[in-house]
């Protein structure tokens, strides 16, 4: 396999999987929290929060990446502070994960919000009357019933994260082995003479990963749905 798949290509694939996985896992609780706020709470500034969450979906990715650079760049105060506590972001794979997570956030929040809205709040009230404190209601009722949507949101977020290009290349550039993810690698191979074959192979890998993610999400969602419906 290594015959036709060079070390550079492997590196890009491995990096992309790592970046997307970390981005998805780190964004998951944030997205769920935001989805819960938007689905179940009424507060001042709710529409502002809703707009802010959705901005990465509608802004040009380059603008989002530039924004991240302004906030977390090597000279920005926030970036420096994070670097001081051992979490440098600019031009690092961690920054790529942040960019991917930000871009995936709106998709995850949308899917999860719908899922939480479909959970019957009357079941949560019933659980409370049975003596379950709020944390137990969340773990035993809300989360299991929202699981299909949460899972679908996570897979959607993962797919978005693995394909993220614009914000990533703007924020953390295109450094081999550090920030050259699969899309950046395809882009790079297309820029050099004789790189077409590599680009094509990476494209095939991208298709395979995306298809696998979709199949997995369908299977999981169907299984979770059967459980929720009690079948």
């Amino acid at each position: 396999m290594t015959d036709w798949f060079g070390p550079e290509e492997w590196q890009a694939v491995r990096l992309s999987l790592r970046v997307a996985l970390v981005a998805t896992l780190a964004t998951l609780p944030v997205a769920y929290g935001l989805a819960h706020l938007l689905a179940r709470r009424d507060f001042v500034g709710k529409s502002a929060l809703n707009i802010a969450v959705h901005l990465p979906l509608v802004l040009p990715p380059v603008v989002t990446g530039y924004g991240l650079l302004l906030l977390f760049g090597p000279t920005a105060p926030l970036g420096r502070a994070l670097e001081a506590i051992g979490l440098p972001l600019a031009f690092r794979w961690t920054g790529a994960a942040l960019a991917a997570g930000i871009m995936a956030l709106p998709l995850m929040v949308r899917a999860m919000r719908l899922a939480i809205e479909t959970v019957d709040a009357r079941l949560e009230a019933a659980a409370a009357t049975l003596g379950a404190p709020p944390a137990r209601v969340f773990v035993t009722i809300t989360l299991p019933l929202a699981a299909p949507g949460v899972l679908a949101g996570a897979v959607l977020g993962f797919a978005k994260a693995i394909g993220e290009f614009g914000a990533t290349i703007t924020f953390v550039s295109n450094i081999p082995g550090e920030t050259r993810t699969l899309p950046s690698a395809v882009y790079t191979f297309l820029q050099v003479p004789g790189g077409d074959a590599s680009a094509l192979r990476l494209a095939a890998v991208a298709v395979a990963i995306a298809a696998l993610a979709l199949v997995l999400s369908e299977v999981w969602a169907a299984r979770a749905l059967r459980k929720v419906r009690g079948q």
Binding site: A126, A127, A128, T129, I141, P144, L145, K227, V228, G230
Partner: peptide, 21 residues
């Protein structure tokens, strides 16, 4: 007292069984 500390069993008109259990 919040509902979960009142120790009052509530049988709802619509049952409200937990569908996933």
């Amino acid at each position: 007292l919040p509902a979960h500390r009142r120790r009052i069993g509530y049988v709802f008109q619509d049952g409200r069984l937990f569908p996933h259990l």
